[in-house]
Every structure is written in C-alpha cells, then in structure tokens.
Design a protein around this nucleic acid. Structure first.
Lengths: 207, 207
DNA sequence: AGTGGATATGCCACAGTGGAATGTCAACCC
DNA sequence: GGGTTGACATTCCACTGTGGCATATCCACT
C-alpha cells in the first residue's frame, strides 16, 4: 500500500472532500478559492488526479447527476492517505518570479522601460493588497483561512516596499503610477510604520 | 522566424551569454548563483535548452576545450531573440508553498504538530534571512543583483513576521518544537466538521 | 599505475502545467 | 417547439520541469 506518497495537489483535493461529495468542477473552484493564492492548479490537473485516485481506491464516484456530474466521496483508504500526507513535513516553497528575472537581467534594458514594467507590476500588487485587506476586514474567516490570508497581506506589503527600494537602487523614477512611497523612506526611521512593529528597518544606502 | 517566443529559462541563458562564451557547466553555476533564488533550474534543463537553441541557431558551439568543454557563443539571431524576450511584460509570479497548504488544511492536524512544523520552518527562514543579510553587507554587488537580493531580504522578513502572527491566530505556542499538549483540547470539543466555527479566539498576546 | 573526486555533458522517464477542444445541458427568446 | 447562448464538466496534447543515471576527462595524490 501507500504506493508513492501522494502529491500535494492530490492531497489537497482529498482535504476538500472531507467536507462532503464534490465533483471535479466543484473541486476546481473550491481549490482556486481556498488555496489558489499559494498553490496554483489547473482543471486538467484536478481531473487527472481524481482519475488516478479513483484507480487507487482513495475516492469513489457516486451516482451521475445532470450533465455528467460525477461526485466523488472519500473512502476509508482516502482518509488514511490524507492523514498520512498532512502529517509529513511540508517541503520548501518554490517561487518562480519572472519580474525578478527581468530585473536581474535588467542591464540589457533601457532604464525607462524597466521603470515602466515595474510601475505596471506595482499597480497590480497594490490592487492585490487592497483586495486581501478588504477580504480580511469584511469576512469573519475561520482561523486557518485567516492565517493564510495574513500571509498574502504580509507578502504583498513586502513586495510593495521592495518596489520603492528598487527604484532607489537603480536610480529610476517611479512616477507614472503616482508616487507615494518616496517620502516614506525618510519617515521610516521615526518608527511610524504600520501595525507591524518588528525590526527596525535598517537603511543601508548612502549614495 | 520567432517560432514560439522563447521560454524564460532559455532566455536567461542567452542573457548570461552576453558576458562571453560559456559552457553548459558554466551556465548552470552562473544561473544558480544569480537567479537561483527565484528561478529554479536544473542541469538537465540547461543542456536541453542549449541543444534546442543551437538547433534554432540562437547560439553556436566553439572549439571543444579540455574535458569536452563545449563553449557556446551568442549569434546575432540569439541576441535578437533575447532582446525581444526581455522587452516583453514579464508574467506574474507563481508561488507554490507547501507549508501554507498544510496550514490551510491544518484543521485536520493536532495543534501541537502544526506548531512543530511551523517552528521547524521558521528556523529555516531565519537562517535564510541571515545568509542574505550577510551577503548584502559583505559584498559590493552590482545594482541589479542588489535589487534582487533586496527582494529576498524583504521576503524573508515578511515570512518571519507571519510566523509570529500565525501562532497567535491559531493559539499556538510559538517557541520550540516541544509543546504538544495544552492547546487544542478545548477547541476540539466543538465537534468534527462543523464548518461554521466562526468566532475567532484571538486572545491577547503578550510576547 | 591506481584511486578518488571534481568537472563536464548528455539521456531518459516521468511528473506537472496550461490551454485548447469537446461535449452536455438549462434557460431564454422568438 | 426550434434555435441560440452560455455556463458547466471533462479530456487531450504539447510543452516544461525534475531527478537520477551513465559517461567521460582530467587532476592530485599515493
């Protein structure tokens, strides 16, 4: 038994199936909503994992509903496999960040173009942060969901702080997105940072 | 021409080849050092991309050196392909974070175990941050490298801040990996899968 | 000469990814 | 009631990524 330990994507599907029978489609949307922020998955993957898990007896298909809806339920073996998986030490994170690639190779790019790209992405991250904060205020989430949402918020804040720094480092003007940060670099030392008091932001520069 | 636009891994290799002829081996180490933090790649991938790019005429092999060293140089077509690639809007980052998965599904895990896992990972991130800060102080990096290193530092700081918050959120004791009993028991009695476990405990933390 | 380790390239099998293609049904409109 | 639309549900396929293995070659040291 326990042939090849179950991958994380499959395991998370089993996790969601603890809440009751779900079809592939249901699982795709559940997963995208609940773990999509830090675990990308696609429909094809979901269906493939479901088929594989059915073969292994971890789940079972129920009666077909309308439109070929095929709801799956956990079997005992599935429950056990999940329990085993979640007990294991999770691996390290794996980040693939095209924007950083562009920055790293940015010497081959005119400064203005790099600035434009950064501005574009900064805007995206501002929106993302706003959305997360919105969500965290509006909804009264169960604690585990709140914890992962926290991650999103802190991550986005860090990214935004980085944008400010990068423009500095590379002597770029950050404007088109409406400069806001510039000032806060200086303010920073007075300790007026947000609710997060943790480590004094050590400014290295001296340029 | 321009058959299917060049993937990011291949493109970064072309980028490094701007610095002069390099062999596959050279490129592996260059890449790991310069972009490995946010763009994972393996030796096999590098050799495969090199072979493919040679077929497409983006690079050319020079004289074989000792030990089958096969240095590649950029061709004009390669230069163009790279220029085209780096001009494009980079995609969004893609994060896969097993630890967050475990947290998100953490209701199926005894609180003590979750705390232990978190403590373990926190330690790793503390080391990583220390390493980055070390590097940033010790070396006088070119600006683009410094910029990406900054990202690493801010990211790790954010992660560490998150660890503190999570323990709070989930009523976990944060310190070392010991500590199994004591928490969780009273949460537990609210029943198996009650999805409406809304009222977040959020106790006052003094730490 | 022999051994072991770092350098160097390449192959293979398989897992994971993304998007297009296909099929099915409910609802709405004339 | 026939036709169109669009959401739902599944499958397929080509590409990308991973990790291990099989070769060599060369160097240093015995």
């Amino acid at each position: 038994m326990t042939g090849r330990p179950l991958n994380a994507t499959a395991a998370s599907l089993l996790g969601f199936l603890h809440e009751g029978p779900k079809t592939g489609w249901d699982l795709v949307s559940t997963a995208q909503e609940r773990i999509g922020k830090f675990w990308s998955l696609t429909t094809s993957q979901v269906y493939r994992e479901l088929a594989a898990m059915e073969r292994k007896g971890l789940i079972e298909a129920g009666e077909k509903g309308p439109r070929d809806r095929k709801p799956f339920v956990l079997t005992e073996a599935g429950r056990r496999a999940f329990a085993e998986w979640i007990e294991r030490e999770p691996g390290d994170e794996n980040i693939r960040h095209p924007l950083l690639l562009t920055v790293a190779l940015g010497e081959h790019l005119p400064a203005g173009r790099l600035a434009a790209i950064l501005a574009e992405h900064r805007k995206k991250h501002e929106h993302q942060l706003a959305a997360y904060e919105q969500e965290s205020i509006a909804e009264d989430l169960p604690p585990h969901a709140a914890a992962t949402l926290d991650f999103g918020i802190l991550y986005e804040r860090a990214v935004l702080e980085w944008f400010g720094r990068v423009c500095d480092r590379l002597d770029l003007e950050s404007d088109d997105a409406g400069r806001v940060e510039r000032v806060s670099e200086e303010d920073r030392r007075s300790g007026a940072t947000d609710p997060a008091r943790r480590s004094s932001p050590r400014r290295a520069a001296g340029r």
